[in-house]
Amino acid sequence: MDALTGAWTWLTTGANWRGESGAGHRLAEHLYFSGVCLAVSCLLALPLALWLGHIGKGGALAVNLSNVGRAVPTLAVLVLLTLTPLGRHGDLPTILALVLFAVPPLLTNAYLGMREVDRAVVEAARGMGMSPWQVFRKVELPLAYPLVMTGLRVATVQVIATATLAAMAGQGGLGRIITAGFNTYDTAQVVAGALIVGALALLVEGLLVVAGRVFDPMRRRRSTA
C-alpha cells in the first residue's frame, strides 16, 4: 500500500510531468515508438498475410517463420541493433526491434482469418460471377475481419508493453521512468511508471475494441444473428 500511495503522489505531482525527463515527454516518445512500429508492421504483415490466405499457398511457411520470430528475445535484438551502425540513427533500432516483435501476431491472425472463411461461401460467390478481387473484398475480408482485429489488438498491447525495454538500450519512452526509479531506489517512481504503461495498454486496447465493432463490415449481420 505504501508503494501505491507513493506512486499516486508521484503521478499527481506536476513537476514529474514536465521537461524532457518528465512523464509527459516520455509518454509522447512511447506513443511515437509504438505508433510507427505498428504502422510499419501492418504495412509489412497484413498485405502479405491476406494475399497468402486468399490464394491458399505459402501460408504455412509464413506462419511458421512468424512463430520463430516470437522466440527471438526483443531486448537482445534491440541491444545488437544499437551496437551496429543503425544505432547512429536515433530511434531506428528500437522501431526495428519492435517491428520484428509485432509482425508475428499480425501475420498469423490475418492468414488464419482468411483461411477459416467457409469455402462453400467463397465458391458460392464465385458461382455468382464475382471476380477474385470482389470475392476478396466483399466476402473473405469481411469474414476474416474479427481475427485480423484480434491480431492487431494483441500486437498493439505487446508493443506498448515491450517498448519499455528501449530504456535498457539508452532509448526513450516510459521505460526511462522505471529504470530511473530503479537507479535511485525510488519504488514509488518504478510503480508509477509501470502503472502508466499498464493504463496506456488498457486504454489503447479498449479503443481498438470499440473501433473494431464500429468498423466491422459484418456488424449488422452479426448483431441480427
Rank of each mutant, 00 (worst) to 15 (best):
A194F: 04
A163D: 03
L200R: 05
T94V: 15
E20R: 12
V72R: 10
H25S: 13
G58S: 09
G181M: 04
D2M: 13
G198I: 03
G127D: 08
N109T: 08
A97C: 10
L86V: 15
R222K: 11
A49I: 00
V210P: 03
V122P: 03
V154M: 12
L50R: 00
R213F: 10
L96F: 11
Y111N: 04
P104R: 00
I55K: 12
W8M: 15
A71N: 13
L11D: 03
A194C: 12
E205W: 02
L143Y: 07
A15L: 10
L48G: 05
L27A: 11
A39R: 05
L86E: 05
L4W: 15
P217N: 09
V40H: 02
Q189C: 06
T74N: 05
A39H: 01
K138M: 11
K138A: 11
T224R: 15
T13C: 04
G151K: 00
N64I: 10
M1K: 12
I196G: 05
T179S: 14
V154D: 04
G206N: 07
V122R: 12
G129L: 12
V77H: 07
I196H: 00
R70Y: 13
R115G: 06
Q171E: 11
G90K: 10
V122N: 01
P217G: 08
E205A: 09
A45C: 10
P73D: 03
V210L: 14
G24Q: 04
V117H: 07
L141K: 04
G175K: 02
D216V: 08
L100P: 04
L46W: 02
T164V: 13
L203T: 14
L80T: 11
L207P: 05
L195N: 08
I95G: 00
R176M: 13
V36W: 08
R88F: 12
V191R: 01
